[in-house]
Design a protein around this nucleic acid. Structure first.
Lengths: 243, 243
DNA sequence: CGCCAAATTGATCAAAGTCAAGAGCCGTGG
DNA sequence: CCACGGCTCTTGACTTTGATCAATTTGGCG
């Protein structure tokens, strides 16, 4: 990718005109002020946006690309908190919560961003309280998701956790293809393991099993869900009781 | 407890004058308006404050007592999200996030509350934005805690998770006694199991082991940490590498 | 005193982690 | 153009953790 620096202006406009949750329902002049205060920024695949423990400096809106938010355990093992894609925001817990970044954000694809420094987002929020309200909604939604994942970790077995993780990825980054719904970014077995609290071995075995059953099709760094209903049945445990 | 209905006015004043996080730094008239708009409320031990899935109706400040926030998995197993004690707030995710209550809140002791209906807390937040800011901080802090617990669930073994859970309980509800630090509310093995994603059997075995080592002392529904440093060592895995 | 919930403890079993070996895929540089 | 090296993935064998099953004991309260 050789044009990292030149995401066309019209693409930014388009991304913002489309329903960016954080700016949904904001007045036109609020919109314009937001754009004025923003800094354009890019990250190449593999570069970090911020690191766990760094003081909260800025707040980001993803225009294009994909970000992985993860924590590292003392023993070096990674835990993936979530992925963020276009129109989603990064850094809101730290910036809104007034704490250091609780996790590390890494670009897993070349990524274009709009960024606001902490004072600027504060200025914006003070002037247009709708933005603060919306940020709260978004945090509320993420909180619900985290609680759900915690519940899954405590009550479900590995295969169902993997099914749930794939279900969420479909909603977030699913792309229709002739074969089924494909997760539209590079996703290794190791990544899925770090999302579900297991090992790449177990993920590999589970996917192999599902592949044999025709539920998914996977290649290197790519997963396609062929039978979404079958996967949902595993996630919700309708399998055994079905007949 | 026969005086549930008569928590003296001066106790409310005292509770509010003490550092209630949500009202910290609020002006005196903000304080007064908040008190005016609030409804006094009580729950006896075992009664619920709100249920998972109910529409968000109100926002609560705990004056005295203790609340358990939990989710129920489809198979009936419970997961404890957190406990809330005096000066903490309940229902903020739902009320601020504009979603139904994501969990059920139950009083585990007789509890006194101040409650605000959604429109009233909105009025208050509009007039005194410090309150909205503070609510965000609180949500940010809870978010960090949830992420930490998710990481623990994914990377740590049961005994360390129990040690971490006890550590958090000490900070939240620890009370100095001659024997050590006591968790100041009734806490069963089952409760600890639901906080750490294990079974009451495993919790019982683990506590027995620690009791034999002199680290904790426990009776029915009661846990006292005799050697906090030893527990911390288990939580942080300094045990094996120590010599 | 008797009942019931909470807690203990032993025996057994299975889910999933660990260890190990190798195969497939891909970019890169000789 | 092809060979090399490094990831990613697969699969088998073995082990461990902690759940499950089961039987008692303890303690508090009516």
């Amino acid at each position: 990718m050789n044009s990292m620096e030149h995401l066309p202006k019209r693409d930014i406009q388009a991304a913002l005109k489309a329903d960016v949750p954080i700016f949904k329902g904001l007045s036109d002049d609020g919109f314009e002020l937001a754009l004025e205060l923003a800094r354009r920024d890019t990250r190449r695949k593999g570069e970090t946006l911020f690191r766990q423990g760094d003081p909260a400096e800025s707040f980001h809106l993803i225009l294009a690309g994909r970000i992985k938010v993860s924590q590292t355990a003392p023993d070096g093992r990674q835990v993936i908190i979530r992925y963020l894609g276009p129109r989603e925001i990064a850094g809101c817990v730290a910036v809104c919560g007034g704490v250091p970044y609780p996790a590390t954000a890494t670009a897993i694809e070349d990524t274009w961003l709009l960024s606001w420094s902490r004072p600027r987002i504060a200025e914006l929020a003070a002037r247009y309280p709708e933005i603060a309200m919306k940020a709260m909604r978004i945090m509320g939604g993420r909180m619900v998701e985290l609680q759900t994942r915690l519940k899954e970790m405590q009550t479900e077995r590995v295969d169902r956790r993997i099914a749930h993780a794939l279900g969420r990825l479909v909603l977030q980054a699913g792309r229709r293809t002739p074969e089924g719904i494909e997760i539209d970014f590079p996703l290794t077995r190791q990544d899925l393991a770090e999302m579900t609290g297991t090992t790449l071995h177990t993920v590999s075995r589970t996917l192999s099993e599902w592949e044999a059953a025709g539920i998914v099709a996977s290649r290197r760094q790519k997963v396609t869900i062929v039978q979404p209903h079958a996967l949902a049945a595993i996630a919700e445990d309708l399998s055994g009781e079905a007949h």
